[in-house]
Design a protein around this nucleic acid. Structure first.
Length: 737
DNA sequence: TCGCCAAGACTTTTT
DNA sequence: GTCTTGGCGA
């Protein structure tokens, strides 16, 4: 019997796809056909079980995953997916909240603030509350608020035990009130409000729970508490929930993701059927074995025995470079050799690293050798200044009371409206009980006849000019198309000449605006509101050509450079993982938290399992950090891989630094010839773990000690009294206890 | 008000 | 190294 939906699946995959009603947990190792199972499951429900698409909700984390799933399902079933809820968690929540805004502190046409908007609101809240932003960094406070939201806490739920908690709770409250004034929500709110609305209003919960006969979830290991609770409520009527994930690939803990939701799922649904997908279709057995040796050291997970029919394959190549430059040189040399032999093309290669900062050296090395490369994700499209500016202009036209947007663009391009003027404007508005935008519009429309003309003083004319522009855009916004409005704003503000200074960078910036205009064109029919509401939920990966896709303008392809985080879900024939040094991978910030250390291990595991044929693990004996050499230890993860699986290509003796120097922008002053000789680090007097006493700060614990370029010993100490300090050994006079 | 310079930070970043 | 931020002088 032929069955196109099931025939080409392995037994485990088939078991998952055809699982009966109830709760199903599919634990899918890397390369085991997770996406395939999910799409076939959808198709199976619709085609074989006669489930109307309308009854299904399928959630993913990225737009890319959602789009991919949709297009694959469409080719599998002979009907359209009319009425299905298929999309990212955030998009699905936004849809639900727009319908149920009656229960919420904002209107249904709310906008979603992105990260920069959020941060500017946090800063304003801190200022308003007179909280010092040095001791309470905006990003840190925001992270704390975000964590609270992911844990389903409202401001009143935040514990107020310490002064810090108190600060967070107060800023949280203020921040929410600002969001509300602007009719805006942040990313976390989408999840928080959805979970809470389902929790607190039985009639809403029942409405959606009844509707969704089937709930399907991708990347389940990356859900946070809010998402978990939401899923539980959505499936509380029909109890059909099908989740796919892999605890070992959970790498977003710092965003609230909790892989233990996998364990929680099994506990909450004791009758759930658990299916393990262990056959791997991507890598060689060598890669899988090595990866397993690394990941098996983690606890609280379901052990998996990944196997492949692809054979043993090549050994993993380990290479210890003399320094960071040599590390990059090795990558470039190796790739060049492959390409010369004709055995591979550039897009077979990926170079992965822990931190974006590491991309610089490899980029320079690739550029130097003329190899084409593609950098994933470093510069974000929507984060770019010019793109953000334009979006704020549009948001302002759509909603003049949006103060965040207004304050951003009121003086862009510079039109003589400074801090002082803005402050008077704000005070005037507050006294009149109006928003800043409304005052501005009044000034623009009535000129010196406006009631506010004298109140704002000398710069009144400047403000009125901008107000006039704004009023004009407002009056035409419903009469002309979105792109025409776009052009009009660019024209009226002289924005093009402001950003495009005819340098290469200026041209790039202008190109970004042209790209944004192209995106806006897709919303010509749906209109500006829809465009703005969706903007924040579109990630950069949707606008930047992705690694696996063919780019017509680059037939030969390019080497892909990306962080380990960005690598999840992708695969390459040859994978280089750079910087396998203690402090880098695992990252030093994870040093004293076992949970974070476990996540570093998973991150490495994700990277390793991206490789189809050949994996290269690299490290450098020393690298340049700030202005000194940093001598690292090999990553602890390397020791976990059995040496039988590894081919050690040893250590290069020559740094390429000299050869670069002539035609690259290495600063010659910072690299004296003396330091090009490989030098052994001098012994440090203080060692990590030592207890020391200082006359100033009392007792403390040495975290790290190193010799910098001037042979000075720098010691990092955690003092009981004052916390972390970095001191020079020669000056601090630390007594070893 | 603007633009320049110096100081300090700097993990990852699906939405 | 490179980015942002804050202070200061024109």
């Amino acid at each position: 019997m032929q069955d196109s939906l099931l025939d080409d699946l392995n037994p485990q995959q088939r078991l998952a796809v055809t699982a009966g009603d109830g709760q199903t947990l599919v634990l899918a190792g890397p390369g085991s056909g997770k996406t395939r199972v999910l799409t076939r499951r959808l198709a199976y429900l619709i085609e074989r079980k006669g489930v109307p698409a309308y009854d299904i909700i399928a959630v993913t984390f990225t737009n890319k995953a959602a789009r991919e799933m949709e297009s694959r399902v469409v080719t599998l079933v002979n009907q359209n997916l009319e009425g299905i809820w298929l999309g990212t968690f955030h998009a699905m929540c936004a849809r639900l909240l727009r319908r149920e805004s009656a229960y919420l502190p904002f209107k249904s046409n709310f906008v979603i603030f992105d990260e920069s908007d959020q941060l500017s609101l946090i800063k304003r809240s801190l200022r308003e509350l007179n909280i010092d932003d040095k001791t309470h960094r905006p990003a840190g406070v925001h992270a704390a608020i975000s964590a609270a939201k992911n844990d389903l806490q409202l401001p009143k739920d935040v514990p107020r035990g310490t002064y810090r908690d108190e600060v967070v709770a107060r800023v949280y409250e203020k921040y929410q009130s600002y969001l509300s004034i602007n009719n805006a929500v942040d990313f976390d709110d989408l999840l928080l409000y959805t979970a809470r609305i389902l929790e607190e209003h039985p009639e809403v919960r029942e409405k959606y729970a009844r509707r969704f006969g089937h709930v399907l979830v991708d990347e389940f290991q990356d859900t946070n508490l809010a998402q978990y609770v939401m899923l539980k409520h959505l499936s509380s009527y029909h109890h059909n929930i099908f989740v796919v994930g892999d605890e070992d690939q959970s790498i977003y803990r710092w965003r609230g993701a909790d892989y233990r939701n996998v364990l929680r799922f099994e506990k909450d649904f004791p009758k759930c059927e658990t299916i393990l997908l262990e056959q791997n279709y991507r890598s060689t057995q060598t890669v899988l074995d090595a990866a397993r040796q690394v990941i098996d050291r983690n606890r609280n997970r379901t052990p998996k025995h990944l196997f492949t029919e692809r054979g043993t394959g090549n050994k993993i190549v380990q290479y210890v470079a003399v320094d960071d430059i040599a590390e990059s040189a090795f990558v470039v040399d190796t790739i060049s050799q492959y390409l010369k032999s004709g055995k591979a093309s550039a897009n077979d290669f990926a170079v992965m690293y822990r931190t974006n900062a590491q991309s610089r050296l490899i980029e320079e090395a690739l550029m130097h050798s003329g190899l084409p490369y593609r950098l994933v994700g470093a510069q974000r499209f929507y984060g770019r200044r010019e793109v953000k500016d334009m979006i704020c202009f549009l948001r302002l036209v759509a909603n003049p009371t949006d103060e965040v947007s207004l304050l951003r663009v009121i003086n862009i391009p510079p039109r003589g409206i400074g801090d002082k003027t803005i402050l008077t404007l704000q005070t005037t508005a507050m006294q009149a009980g109006l928003s800043v935008g409304e005052v501005l519009l009044d000034l623009g429309q009535k000129g010196d006849a406006s009631a506010f003309w004298s109140a704002v003083g000398r710069p009144a004319a400047l403000l009125a000019d901008f107000g006039t522009l704004l009023a004009e855009w407002q009056s035409v916004k419903d009469k002309i198309s979105l792109t025409s409005l776009f052009d009009r704003i660019v024209e009226d503000t002289g924005y093009e000449s402001y950003i495009n200074d005819q340098t290469e960078e200026g041209n790039d910036r202008w190109d970004n605006l042209v790209e944004l205009r192209r995106l806006a064109f897709d919303f010509e029919e749906k209109g500006m509101d829809e465009f703005l509401q969706n903007l924040a939920l579109v990630s950069d990966q949707d606008t930047i050509p992705q690694a696996e896709s063919e780019e017509p303008d680059r037939p030969k392809g390019a080497v892909t450079l990306l962080t380990l985080h960005a690598a999840k879900g992708l695969e390459y024939n040859q994978v280089f993982i750079m910087g396998l040094d203690e402090g880098l991978l695992p990252h030093s910030r994870s040093r004293d938290d076992p949970e974070e250390m476990a996540e570093e291990r998973r991150l490495f595991y994700v990277g390793m399992t991206r490789a189809r044929n050949q994996l290269y693990l690299l490290r450098a004996e020393r690298r340049r950090m700030f202005n000194a050499w940093d001598y690292g230890e090999p990553s602890r993860f390397l020791a976990d891989i059995n040496s039988d699986l590894v081919l050690n290509q040893g250590r290069h003796g020559v740094s390429r630094r000299e050869t670069y120097e002539s035609d690259f922008r290495w600063s010659t002053t910072s690299i004296t010839p003396k330091r090009m000789v490989v030098e052994t680090p001098k012994e440090t007097k203080y060692k990590a773990g030592m207890r020391v006493r200082s006359a100033n700060w009392g007792d403390g614990l040495v975290l790290e000690s190193k010799i910098d370029s001037d042979s000075e010993e720098t010691v990092d100490v955690h003092f009981e009294s004052v916390g972390f300090k970095r001191v020079l050994a020669s000056l601090a006079n630390l007594e070893i206890l």
